[in-house]
Design a protein around this nucleic acid. Structure first.
Length: 245
RNA sequence: GGCUAGUGGC
């Protein structure tokens, strides 16, 4: 079954959901029992296409096959729902998961935190963050980045840097995603000088800028009318071997 | 345990 799973994963990665479904059917035809990973892999492919009916159908099939959903199954479904803005439904899945005795992990919490933050409800994100602490679920780099993003979107750079400080205190090093989020946040608040300081800080800590970081910074400088600096940063981007869009 | 879900710009 593992070989079939890997095959499905590769097809889904290249966007061939139909192919993945064929692999799944082929598995059944040959009498190979799909594992929970088989179902989860196919589920993630279906969810990427925002096909929630298909996802529910697969859940039914899973039940019929006597395969118990695990934290990945619920996490995948929640992400699928969040992607199309159905956060409330994702929260229901979250509750269902808890009722069935599956403990939510960092990934599941991050999915909800990120969804709330993107919807503009950082307060809800922070609430989940506290709930994680209460339940003893560890925050990791991705979880912190999602929160930092929410705070930046809420125009609360102060709170965002406080969170980054806390992140450092727990021994996590901000990565290029963290920095890009902060730099973009600074730019969108018109704090271009602060954005440039963050760029330096980032380099000082040995974190390299990538195309996303450069794009955020350059577009921020341009929008602020600081075209000379924008050009300078653009040249630097090319110098380090990156392609501007 | 080994294959599956979560975070940044234009």
């Amino acid at each position: 079954a593992k070989l079939f799973n890997v095959l499905m994963r590769d097809m889904i990665r290249s966007g061939e959901l139909a192919g993945a479904r064929n692999v799944f059917d082929e598995m059944l035809r040959r009498g190979v029992r799909p594992t929970v990973v088989s179902f989860n892999t196919l589920m993630s492919g279906i969810c990427k296409g925002a096909d929630l009916d298909g996802a529910n159908a697969l859940r039914g099939l899973m039940a019929k096959a006597g395969v118990t959903p695990d934290v990945y199954t619920y996490g995948t479904l929640m992400q699928g729902l969040c992607r199309v803005g159905r956060i409330q439904d994702a929260v229901e899945i979250f509750e269902e998961m808890c009722e069935r005795g599956v403990d939510p992990n960092t990934v599941v919490f991050t999915t909800l935190i990120d969804a709330h933050c993107k919807e503009g409800d950082v307060a809800a994100g922070l609430e989940l963050y506290r709930e994680m602490a209460a339940r003893g679920v560890q925050m990791d780099l991705v979880a912190y980045n999602a929160l930092v993003n929410g705070l930046c979107r809420a125009r609360d750079l102060k709170a965002a840097s406080d969170i980054v400080q806390e992140m450092r205190n727990t021994g996590l090093k901000p990565d290029k995603v963290t920095y890009t989020t902060l730099i973009d946040g600074c730019c969108k608040e018109g704090k271009l000088d602060m954005a440039m300081v963050m760029k330096r800080e980032m380099l000082d800590e040995g974190v390299a800028l990538d195309e996303v970081t450069y794009t955020a910074l350059i577009s921020g400088l341009r929008k602020a009318g600081r075209s000379v600096e924008a050009e300078r940063v653009l040249c630097e981007m090319v110098d380090v071997g990156l392609e501007p869009d």
